[in-house]
Design a protein around this nucleic acid. Structure first.
Length: 356
DNA sequence: AAAAGAACCAACCGCATCTGA
DNA sequence: TTCAGATGCGGTTGGTTCTTT
């Protein structure tokens, strides 16, 4: 128990390695193997602690280390694995031959994390951030202020509006609950077999977020009160239709949407068309899957919030699972595939068992 | 051309876990 | 079963390089 005292010992060199030290270390390991890291520095003639030698070897000198920029495929693999494993860098590194955990960690912290944040995704949960809710009271207050200044509304109109907003707020609170990860420290375990209702709720959540984005736009673009009210009513109607309140007691943890490869050139999320597929009623046929379609060309505030493509971390192939049983979400998009892990697919996945 | 700030990444630190006596 | 040493892992630091002003 307890930590190794080797690094506390005085007189041992720290800091950057010189080419001579590297040469000694490589030569020794090539001839003898590393054996005991603690004993290695003495045997190799290095004035370093064993820990430092191990780190230098595993992160830099090992012959199988791959150098250079991460490819798009590697980036996608890291994103997918991170959504599954969280900050388990060594576990992620085992799926990226030639890459070290340290390198992946650095790449994540300097590139991928920032990209996700820029796109409005929580880098830990890989879900859309819910920050929008914190500004909602402010937006509503602004809208009301504008109306009060521009129009002399009757008390009935005001009362109706307040009533609508109250309903909206209650539903937003539900939505916020649905979007929250179960813990704040670890990512949402996507390995949990998603249930039908979970899939529906994630789709509903996206739908709701879309309408919220349009609410925000409406507030800024009100030409007159009647149009605002029309839009507002439409949004409320959307909210009414979107949340299956009757099913709320069944609601548990929604399955996660994994993140897509980014548009590397434009550094933004871009999808021409997306269709999420989930079990549920369709107005035309109660047995056919429910579709939700979103389109976007730029990540503006009014852009729909989109569940992006998913790459299978094991095969590196885009999933294009079209499962009408309701366990999967699938889509066709400009990336050629989008989805949420289907339950049976996950259970067969060796990675799932490894994690479980 | 110089200074400031941002980005990058190798290396360190300390805790957790493993291993063997 | 306990305990100490060894190793692994993830967070953090700080020096270097690149970019912007």
């Amino acid at each position: 128990m307890g930590r190794s005292p080797c690094c506390d010992e005085s007189g041992l060199k720290k800091g950057p390695w010189t080419p001579e030290e590297d040469q000694k270390l490589v030569k020794y390991i090539q001839e003898h193997g590393h054996g005991s890291w603690r004993a290695l520095p003495t045997l190799a003639g290095l004035n370093r602690c064993g820990k430092s030698c191990r780190l230098r070897w595993t992160n830099y000198l090992r012959p199988d280390i791959k150098r250079g920029k991460f490819s798009q495929e590697e980036e996608q693999t890291i994103l997918n694995l991170h959504s599954l494993l969280g900050n388990k860098w060594s576990a992620i590194a085992t799926h990226l031959p030639g890459r070290t955990d340290n390198e992946i960690k650095n790449f994540w912290n300097t590139h991928l994390k920032k990209k996700l944040i820029q796109m409005g995704f929580d880098p830990m949960t890989h879900r859309p951030r819910t920050d929008i809710f914190s500004s909602l009271p402010h937006l509503i207050a602004l809208a009301n202020l504008k109306e009060l200044m521009d129009h002399q509304n009757s008390w009935e109109e005001q009362a109706l509006k307040l009533q609508s907003e109250a309903v909206q707020m209650v539903k937003l609170q539900h939505l916020q609950y649905l979007l929250q990860p179960t813990t704040t420290t670890s990512p949402q375990p996507i390995a949990m077999p998603p249930t039908t209702s979970n899939n529906i709720i994630d789709v509903e959540a996206l739908n709701l977020l879309n309408s919220l984005a349009s609410i925000e736009d409406n507030i800024h673009q009100i030409p007159n009160l009647s149009q605002f009210e029309t839009n507002n009513e439409r949004n409320i109607q959307t909210l009414n239709e979107s949340i299956p309140f009757a099913h709320l007691p069944e609601l548990e943890i929604p399955c996660s949407f994994l993140l897509s490869p980014l548009d590397s050139e434009n550094n933004m999320f871009q999808a021409s068309t997306m269709t999420l597929l989930s079990q549920g009623e369709n107005s035309n046929s109660p047995h056919s899957p429910r579709f939700l379609t979103a389109s976007s060309s730029s990540p503006t505030s009014s852009s729909p919030i989109i569940a992006p493509p998913l790459t299978d971390p094991m095969t590196m192939n885009h999933n294009s699972i079209n499962n009408n049983q309701g366990d999967a979400c699938s889509t066709s998009s400009s990336y050629g595939g989008v989805g949420v892990w289907p339950a049976d697919c996950l259970l067969e996945d060796p990675l799932f068992h490894e994690i479980a």
